[in-house]
Simulated scan of single mutants.
Amino acid sequence: MRKTTTLLAAIAALALSVTTASAQSSQGAMKGMDHSAMGGMKGMKGMKGDHNMMAMNEYMTAMKKMDQAMMNAKGSTPDVTFARKMMAHHQGAIDMAQIELRHGSDADAKKIAQKTIDENTKGTSELEAWLKSHGG
């Protein structure tokens, strides 16, 4: 039984590492690619298609900015690092919600976007106050 459990754990770990490596390889392969013809974007014509493409490009830019900011956020303690990374995460949520407000057409989605902005602005303020009071 113990050998079987160990073997299954080893197989699971190997499968996870292969999946992770494959995903990372795919992400690297997509850098620099022209994504304008991907998926549902293909065949879109006219103002609506241009508007959707503009929003998609803005989302991609916002996510790259957030990812980079989160990767670069560091601190002298795990607590400070957490606060700084979460501030970058909150800003990314705010940026994406603002894109929804600019480009979205559904009233309920826009309400959620505004709520996202409000909550993440508050979260950022709390983290900033915590950093200030803890020398971060």
Rank of each mutant, 00 (worst) to 15 (best):
Ala113Val: 14
Glu126His: 08
Lys85Asn: 02
Lys48Tyr: 10
Gly46Ala: 03
Gln114Trp: 07
Gly92Arg: 02
Arg2Cys: 00
Met87Cys: 03
Ala15Ser: 09
Ser76Tyr: 08
Ala109Gly: 11
Leu16Glu: 00
Ala12Gln: 05
His134Gly: 01
Thr124Ile: 14
Lys110Trp: 09
Thr61Asn: 13
Gly32Glu: 06
His89Ile: 00
Ala83Lys: 01
Phe82Cys: 02
Ala73Thr: 00
His103Gly: 03
Thr81Pro: 00
Ala83Ile: 04
Ala29Glu: 13
Gly104Phe: 03
Thr124Pro: 02
Ala93Leu: 14
Gly46His: 04
Met1Ile: 06
Gly92Leu: 00
Arg102Asn: 15
Val80Ala: 09
Gln98Leu: 12
Gln27Ser: 09
Ala55Gln: 08
Ala37Glu: 12
Lys3Val: 02
Gly92Asn: 01
Asn52Met: 15
Ser125Gly: 15
Met87Ser: 01
Thr19Ala: 09
Ala83Leu: 08
Met47Gly: 08
Ile112Ala: 15
Ala9Ile: 05
Asn52Val: 14
Gly28His: 02
Met30Phe: 06
Ser36Met: 04
Ala13Tyr: 06
Thr61Gln: 14
Met38His: 09
Ser25Glu: 12
Met54His: 12
Leu7Val: 05
Glu58Gln: 12
Ala37Trp: 08
Glu58Leu: 10
Ala113Ile: 13
Gln98Cys: 03
Gln68Asn: 13
Asp79Ser: 09
Lys31Thr: 04
Lys48Pro: 00
Asp34Asn: 13
Met54Cys: 10
Lys45Tyr: 01
Asn72Arg: 11
Lys65Ala: 11
Lys48Ile: 13
Leu127Asn: 05
Gly92Met: 01
Arg2Asn: 06
Ala83Asp: 03
Gly32Ser: 07
Ala107Gly: 07
Asp108Val: 08
Met47Asn: 14
Thr81Val: 01
Asp67Thr: 02
Lys111Glu: 07
Gln98Phe: 07
Asp79Leu: 08
Leu127Cys: 04
Met47Ala: 15
Thr121Val: 09
Gly32Asn: 09
Met70Asp: 01
Met60Tyr: 06
